[in-house]
Design a protein around this nucleic acid. Structure first.
Lengths: 190, 190
DNA sequence: ACCTGAACACCGTTCAAGT
DNA sequence: ACCTGAACACCGTTCAAGT
């Protein structure tokens, strides 16, 4: 006789996301996830292939959130403003969900896969904004410049680069202005 | 009767470094390390406090290598050239020892601690070079700009951001030129 | 003073047995 | 069709016993 499912994939991924943010990827054990959704750990294997696949699902969900956020903050009327808004959004997401961000960046302790590449899906709208400033020939290089800086800055910030002192928010804004200006070859922006 | 030591901390850290590069931090198990140095895993605890401390020692060794490399490639006569040389050196190191770089970046699977901050020790000489271009007021912001971009780019590269295509070496050189130019407020560099 | 086997608590994963 | 307990191979770590 068929037994009705006592949990499902969505609940499992949610539980894993919660555990990830609370204790890092190491805290996402099959037993902890199982306990949170109310089953025993072997039952999870009816819904996810294994722990690695579960973490990939968590990652995919985070990428989707980032894509949605990117679409929300985008400003189609002003490329410069749009780039700034999207990078600010990325930083906000990273501060709110550092472990998910680290997972997406391929930076997480216990991460399943390198995956910055998948983030580049959410770079698509950024790419269009950047193209407006660089022209099509340097659009890809420009997008890489911008994304590399932002993620590198965030990595430093989350890793606690406070010890050098200084105003981190100020450093972000100054860097952001410089980076955007650097996309425009000839005009020496303010 | 005292028994002569059959291994020592240096050999243990070396073995751990090798395992790290071969299979990532997950491969640095106490048993694998023990086997490589020719003892049983419990004996390791006579020389290192625990696995976490061992990984920290590996990280410290990598930071020391980076510092040495940085000192080697530095060019005291030309700040711009010196910055480029140091970032190129960082990229070379990251490509040769991706796992060690990831560990230092706080990016490794199973990393013990966020530690980009400690990298900033090796940023000291970079900081001096940057100061020549930005002046003292923006030196810290400028160093953060440069280091963030370089590490972000390397993270993308190591994570396999090839899928978007394009010339990655070209993107690095172009970005590097732009970043260095961005340090000089007014002059619109070539 | 260092090394070892045995032991403990924990992992992920498989599988036969239940409903 | 899903859930479970038992089991397996593996972790990190402790500790009494060896030399």
């Amino acid at each position: 006789m068929p037994t009705p499912a006592r949990t499902d994939r969505g609940a499992i991924v949610d539980a894993a996301s919660g555990l990830l943010e609370e204790g890092g990827a190491d805290a996402v054990t099959m037993q902890a996830v199982a306990e949170r959704v109310g089953v025993r750990s072997p039952s999870l294997y009816k819904h996810v292939e294994n722990r690695r696949a579960l973490l990939e699902a968590v990652m995919t969900a985070a990428v989707a959130e980032l894509d949605a956020l990117s679409a929300t903050v985008r400003d189609r009327d002003d490329a410069r403003r749009s780039i700034a808004a999207q990078l600010d959004g990325l930083r906000r997401f990273a501060r709110a969900r550092p472990q998910a961000w680290a997972l997406v960046m391929g930076i997480a302790p216990g991460a399943p896969l390198p995956s910055v590449a998948s983030t580049e899906g959410s770079v698509r709208s950024l790419l269009e904004d950047v193209t407006e400033l660089t022209g099509p020939d340097r659009a890809l290089d420009g997008a890489r410049l911008v994304v590399a800086w932002a993620n590198g800055f965030i990595a430093m910030e989350l890793a606690g680069a406070h010890r050098l002192g200084g105003d981190l928010d100020g450093a972000w804004r100054w860097g952001l202005a410089r980076i955007v200006a650097a996309l425009e070859p000839d005009r020496p922006a303010a």
